[in-house]
Amino acid sequence: MELHIYTDGASRGNPGPGGYGILLIWGKVRKELSQGYRKTTNNRMELLAVITGLETLTREGLDVIIFTDSKYVVDSIEKGWLWGWVKTGFRDKKNKDLWTRFIPLYKKHRVKMQWVKGHASNPFNNRCDELATQAADSGNWLIDEGFESEN
């Protein structure tokens, strides 16, 4: 059985307060996750949503499809850009801290990335958008250490 992970990120200003929303679907089981950050970017929240979704998994070797409306995340992985960045030590690339956190999680499973159109007719993506924007607006923020230490 495939695990479906829907993700979305949001930022109020870029940078600004941000958040992510995640919906994990395993058969009939559903789990929602979200978190806000006081200062971050949209791309960081899109990527952090994927990372957090994978970090919640307690077993290795799962068939996982990650649905996201982030071309940045999908193209970086599916077009192989990420592996080129690894070879160059992420020279002149943003979000190295998150990408290096993502790679071992990605390698633990059989992950496929699936782009979905944002703010469209996909109810699961729309729910993740709601969770992400609520988290960004919540005032209950964590500190995005990777972003704030670089900026």
Results as ranks from 00 to 15, higher is better:
G16L: 09
L48K: 12
L82C: 09
K93M: 11
V86T: 08
D97A: 14
G61S: 09
A10Q: 08
D92F: 05
V64H: 00
N42F: 04
K96A: 14
E78C: 12
L98N: 14
R44Q: 07
R59Q: 15
P15I: 06
K71R: 13
G53M: 07
V74C: 08
G21D: 01
G36Q: 12
G27L: 09
F90N: 13
I103G: 03
E55I: 01
L62Q: 14
S11N: 08
I66R: 02
V50A: 15
G9E: 10
D97E: 13
K96S: 10
I25W: 00
I65Q: 02
G16A: 12
S11K: 08
H119F: 05
E2R: 06
V74Y: 03
K108P: 00
L33S: 07
R38P: 00
D63N: 11
F67L: 12
G19Y: 02
K31M: 04
K93S: 09
K112F: 06
L98G: 08
I77R: 04
S11A: 14
G53L: 11
G21R: 05
G84N: 15
G13Y: 10
A10S: 15
E46M: 09
R38L: 09
R44V: 03
S34N: 14
S76T: 15
L62A: 10
V29S: 14
G21I: 05
G36F: 10
V50S: 01
G18N: 12
I5Q: 00
S11G: 10
G27W: 06
S70D: 07
T68S: 14
